[in-house]
Structure formats: structure tokens, C-alpha cells
């Protein structure tokens, strides 16, 4: 583990679980019951044949806490694999946000211009509003939202982070 990683206290943890009722409640209950942070959490089925879902959790804490979180997750019976993408080598992470902006005139033009810079797509439009779809790292999504604020931002919906390790190997 490098020093840089030791200092960073935000971790992206990928958890492979049985896709059964209650499994998400177990994971969330573990975090709330033990006082761990959840910055973002996403879940969806990833293997219908094996009946597996993947939960991606972004959390933060000291090294001991992060180790605890991973070990506590591994203790859950329907949890198969727990990987800390932050320390297990390079990974890519993305999130998607839908952002509604309602404005007119120069503000409306400016919103379109910035959307273009961020490669955000307009997926809905009326005479007085747009819904933009922006994909990227959390920082990019946040920067886009900040820029939309003075331009008539009215609503935001985000998926939370999904992440996967780089390279040919599976989890």
C-alpha cells in the first residue's frame, strides 16, 4: 500500500451478492447499525443466470474502519466477494446524472454551451427547460451541477457511482 493511498480515506467497495430479498437491507443496516458512512450506493442485478447483484459503495473512514467495513460485509451470508477498488489497483468509476434546467434567453443558450463542453446530452426539451444527461467521474458531475446552478437548475437525479477494475480480470 502506498503512502498516498493510506492518506486517502474515501474508498470504493464493490460487493457481489446473491440477488435475494433483504440483501440490500442487510448491507444498509450494517452501515447504519455500526455508524459507517455511505457516500453513494448503487445496486443492480449483474448475472441473471447465477442470480448475482453487484453493490458499489463509496464510503469513507480511517484504515481500521475501512478494514472493518470490508470484514463485516464478508460476514454476511449472501455476500460472495468484497473488493476494495481503491487499494486493489487501478479502476474506473462513473456516475450518471439527469439535470433539469429551466430558463430562457441568454441563460438558456449558456446552459446549452456548457452542456456541450461537458459532453452532456439534452434528452428532453421544452420551450422553457432542458433535461441534460451527464456521465463521468463524480467530480465532473458535481462541476456541471455547480455551473448549472445560476442558469436555472431546478432538479437533479444521480445514479451514484458504479466502478470496475481496469484490465482483463473479473472480480
Amino acid at each position: 500500500m502506498t503512502d498516498a493511498v493510506q492518506d486517502s480515506n474515501r474508498h470504493t467497495i464493490s460487493v457481489l451478492v446473491d440477488n435475494e430479498s433483504g440483501v440490500l437491507a442487510r448491507v444498509i443496516g450494517l452501515f447504519s447499525g455500526r455508524g459507517y458512512n455511505i457516500e453513494s450506493l448503487t445496486v443492480a442485478e449483474v448475472d441473471a443466470h447465477e442470480n448475482l447483484s453487484r453493490i458499489t459503495i463509496v464510503t469513507s473512514g480511517t484504515r481500521m474502519i475501512i478494514e472493518q467495513i470490508k470484514n463485516q460485509l464478508r460476514r454476511l451470508v449472501p455476500v460472495h466477494k468484497v473488493h476494495d477498488l481503491t487499494i486493489e489497483g487501478p479502476h474506473v468509476s462513473r456516475e450518471l446524472a439527469l439535470i433539469k434546467v429551466a430558463s430562457s434567453g441568454e441563460k438558456r443558450v449558456e446552459a446549452l454551451r456548457i452542456a456541450d463542453i461537458f459532453r452532456a446530452r439534452a434528452i428532453d426539451s421544452t420551450n422553457e427547460s432542458f433535461v441534460f444527461e451527464v456521465v463521468g467521474a463524480t467530480e465532473k458531475v458535481e462541476a456541471f451541477i455547480t455551473l448549472m446552478q445560476p442558469l436555472g437548475l431546478v432538479d437533479v437525479s444521480r445514479t451514484g457511482v458504479v466502478a470496475i477494475a481496469r484490465g482483463p480480470k473479473a472480480l
Binding site: M64, E67, Q68, N71, Q72, R74, R75
Partner: peptide, 11 residues
Amino acid sequence: IDPSSINKNVA
């Protein structure tokens, strides 16, 4: 036998 017992309270 329980990995979560290790380094929980005492390193």
C-alpha cells in the same frame, strides 16, 4: 475465526 474481530478495537 471471525476476520471482523481482528483490528476492530485493538490493532
